[in-house]
């Protein structure tokens, strides 16, 4: 097959993956709606049950009033289980969403591989290519993390984010296969860019968790918690723990990206650090996440406050990928556009 054919099939696969992701997104959105309904039902049922229990208790007390030593110690849980720990049975929608996500990823990966064959090198050397590969990594990391902890409630977020990023990459950033300029011909391209995309994937998921944490935190402190569907999510503290751990992995990867980038810059441009725009933004992101890690360890900052830093960090990652690549001048001018 020729390069052109392969790149065409790569695009077909990318569009198909987007179609499947769209189904997955819809399924996850329906699941969220269902969660909302379930939570409503559960809350009503809990109130009813409690009312019944109280009524029953009154009867029992009335009945046993005459018997000696008849006071019965009734030990009952009256708190409503918010589903944080009791694993909620996954809904049909959620299962559809997950399986569509897996299927979408398989097609997506084939698109990445086709592009690799078309270009005859790793498919992450211009913006279209990092968009294509990076989004596949976000889904892959999400699915892998899901094997260890249940993050399915983030499915709609991951699919939504992914559709936007992949859509922009395919529609706005597409470029035909082109050879690598000599500065990019290095095994550091393979390592540095791949690890950066992987770090971004972890930051993306941590960002989603932090956003959920902030909402959950508001509901927990508010008198009248809206957004019933969040009843089915873990509590703010658990969300924070997860966000933090996933961001830590992202941070380690980002640290490596920074160092690998410096080593590569030394080889390609003759200096390891020169405050090029892209270098500067990589540094800024690194410092923001270092701040996030510190904030979590600072009294008065744990909780929602530190979560905002995680969001700022992820916003900076997205800014670095989009605006800095496109509009800022610098040595890293490899958007290919």
């Amino acid at each position: 097959m020729t390069t052109d054919q392969l790149s065409l099939y790569c695009l077909y696969a990318a569009y198909s993956a987007m179609a499947i992701y769209t189904i997955s997104f819809i399924a996850f959105a329906l699941d969220l709606a269902k969660r909302s309904g379930d939570a409503q039902v559960a809350a009503t049922a809990a109130i009813k049950a409690q009312a019944q229990r109280l009524a029953g208790k009154a009867e029992m007390i009335a009945e046993s009033a005459g018997t000696p030593g008849g006071s019965v110690a009734v030990l009952e849980r009256t708190d409503v289980d918010t589903g944080a720990d009791a694993p909620r049975r996954s809904s049909k929608f959620e299962r559809i969403g997950m399986s569509m996500m897996v299927l979408g990823l398989a097609v997506h990966i084939s698109s990445v591989v086709l592009r690799g064959f078309a270009a005859d090198r790793v498919p992450w050397a211009n913006m279209f290519e990092f968009g294509l590969t990076g989004t596949a990594l976000i889904v892959a990391v999400f699915l892998i993390v899901n094997l260890f902890v249940n993050l399915r409630y983030l499915g709609a977020y991951v699919m939504g984010l992914n559709l936007i990023l992949l859509g922009v990459a395919v529609v706005n950033f597409y470029v035909a296969v082109s050879p690598l300029v000599p500065a990019l011909q290095s095994y550091w391209l393979v390592i540095h860019v791949f690890v950066a995309c992987l770090g971004t994937a972890f930051f993306a998921i941590a960002g989603g968790l932090s956003a959920a944490q902030i909402i959950q935190d508001r509901r927990e402190t508010a008198k009248n918690p809206g957004l019933r569907l969040f009843d089915t999510l873990p509590g703010a503290e658990r969300l924070e723990d997860l966000a933090y751990r996933i961001a830590l992995v992202g941070f380690v990867l980002w640290t490596f990206t920074l160092i690998a980038g410096a080593i590569w810059a030394e080889k390609a441009w003759g200096r390891y650090w020169g405050w090029d725009t892209k270098e500067t933004w990589t540094f800024i992101i690194w410092v923001i996440y270092a701040g996030y890690i510190h904030a979590r360890a600072t009294r008065g900052w744990r909780g929602a406050r530190s979560a905002y830093l995680s969001l700022v960090g992820f916003a900076a990652v997205m800014f670095n990928f989009s605006v800095v690549n496109l509009l800022f001048k610098g040595l890293h001018a490899y958007s290919g556009l």
């Binding site: 020169g274 405050w275 933004w281 800024i284 410092v287 510190h294 904030a295 800022f328």
Partner: peptide, 25 residues
């Protein structure tokens, strides 16, 4: 708290260096 504040300031202070071309680079 100070370490955190200074880290945030460091990130912020680096931003203009990316918006405006730099003599060194």
């Amino acid at each position: 708290r100070t370490a955190l504040l200074l880290l945030m300031l460091l990130a912020l202070a680096a931003v203009p260096g990316s918006l405006v071309p730099q003599t060194s680079s």
